[in-house]
Amino acid sequence: MSLSELAFKLNDHVTNEGTRFDAVLSEEGVLEVVCSNNDEFPINIVKTDTQLLAITPLFDAKEVQAEKLAELNEELLYMSPAIPLSSIGRQGSTYILFGAMALNTVFENIVHELEIQAENTLEVLQVVEPLLV
């Protein structure tokens, strides 16, 4: 399924939990998806030869209280294995939450992954919020 097809299907879909999606494909080939259960932190989907990557940028390293950076990194390392379907990483100076799916993942599972990722984002941010400026 191409990213434009995915965008089309997502815009027309409501999950059992009532989550809706607002998906827009950028010129650079990034599919930005806003989930109604968390519309402040969009999920960016990109495609490689073998996988779909769903990435939610969380915050910039500059947004972390300087003296709390090590503590934050440790918190995230501890937290990462406990988060269902998502992992935590850093891209450049941006902390990200991401999930990887095989290209042949069925639409229902992609939706499930996105819905969970939107929830995970809130949970992770609530934990680290006291360490941010």
């Binding site: 950028s26 650079e28 080939g29 990034v30 930005e32 969009p42 960016n44 989907i45 990109v46 495609k47 490689t48 990557l53 990435i55 940028p57 969380l58 915050f59 910039d60 500059k62 947004e63 891209q91 450049g92 100076s93 941006t94 990200i96 991401f98 941010l125 919020e129 941010l132 400026v133």
Partner: peptide, 23 residues
């Protein structure tokens, strides 16, 4: 691809970095 997906938001972070307590 990760860099591509992160860069647009990073720009936003940079734009709002003056705003405290963004998260």
């Amino acid at each position: 691809q990760l860099q591509k997906a992160t860069s647009s938001m990073s720009t936003n972070f940079a734009a709002t970095s003056s705003s405290e307590h963004r998260v």
